[in-house]
Design a protein around this nucleic acid. Structure first.
Lengths: 183, 183
DNA sequence: GGTAGCATGTAAACGGTTACATGATTCA
DNA sequence: TGAATCATGTAACCGTTTACATGCTACC
């Protein structure tokens, strides 16, 4: 149930609509969090009833009312308390790609190689994204908003993403070599 | 919905009970999948009604009946079809630890450092686990069962786990240095 | 006396995904 | 003509987590 904190986190940077939060989420956070609009809108409403954010509706023609959300002092408090609380255990993760590889001992080499090569391509694409687009978005956002301290944190997280994808790519390349040499 | 495949994967190696699957899951798969017994037991029953596994109950005194599950030919087919199907997109992952760091630009240095140091300790522990215990379990299992081809796959996945944790540890060390130098 | 291991389950609640619904504008 | 962008939502379903329930044995 950390989506609440992701939403509060973005609203802590600036007031914005659910739609804008979604765009930010897709651009910068997809390494470690994601959500659809269908989940974001009701969660924002819930945060509103809890007094952690306020909403201001603006009429538009042809489109639904634009609801701009702003974090309240209570919301800031809740967010900061959560951010400062040290992680007490590693959040267990799930990865269907690794699950497939882990159990593919009973497949033929060719099928395993197809799987590994597909995953390698996906990981390479993701690596290029962290090196390029994600990096640029951070730079531009810092330039546009002056949030240098926040920018340092964003850049740190991006670097981990890049390192992880690079480890993935190198590992998959080695794995392909190894499986090729299997009888 | 990959728990089904994780269960079928283990039963593809050997017939066993839900309790034993859980032990195997905890020892080897926690890098990429996890589940509680409360989820495993009903899912096995469901697989049984679908004809993908069969169960043999054995009475025990003082304990509930021991239900040993065996994969059926239909189950093997379903498993292999899933394993051979190449991943079509990167499964999006969630990581509350990174979420905290990403948004901690508004925290004081001391609070950020507490967070980073706690996470570093957890990651170091996990790295040691992959290097030691996990490696040993794989070696012993291969020695006991003769599943060398499967063992190659397990060892590959373990190596990625180790590489990822190492990347985490090195990154957190660098991050701590960087945050210490922040004004 | 308490914890860990063995061994199975149910019920309620929650979080998240998929599908559905609307409707204007802009661009290829 | 169709897809993408802007902009919001609801309903049903499914997977997962948390809490509850039982009970024996072995070990510290």
């Amino acid at each position: 149930m950390s989506l609440r904190y992701a939403l509060l986190g973005f609203l802590g940077l600036d007031s914005m609509t659910g739609y804008e939060i979604k765009k930010n989420l897709d651009q910068s956070t997809q390494l470690f969090w994601h959500a659809g609009l269908n989940q974001i809108y009701p969660t924002l409403k819930k945060l509103e009833t809890e007094g952690l954010v306020t909403a201001e509706a603006e009429s538009q023609d042809g489109k639904p009312d634009k609801r701009t959300y702003t974090i309240t002092p209570a919301g800031s408090e809740v967010l900061h308390a959560w951010l400062a609380e040290p992680l007490s255990f590693l959040p267990p993760s799930k990865n269907a790609g690794l699950l497939k590889i882990f159990f593919s001992g009973s497949l033929e080499n060719a099928a395993v190689l197809r799987q590994l090569e597909t995953q390698l391509e996906l990981r390479r694409k993701q690596l290029r994204r962290y090196e390029g687009e994600t990096r640029q978005v951070i730079e531009e956002t810092v330039a546009a908003t002056g949030l240098t301290r926040e920018g340092t944190m964003w850049e740190l997280v991006r670097e981990l993403g890049e390192a992880h994808e690079r480890a993935y790519v190198e590992w998959l390349e080695r794995a392909i070599e190894k499986v090729r040499q299997l009888p």
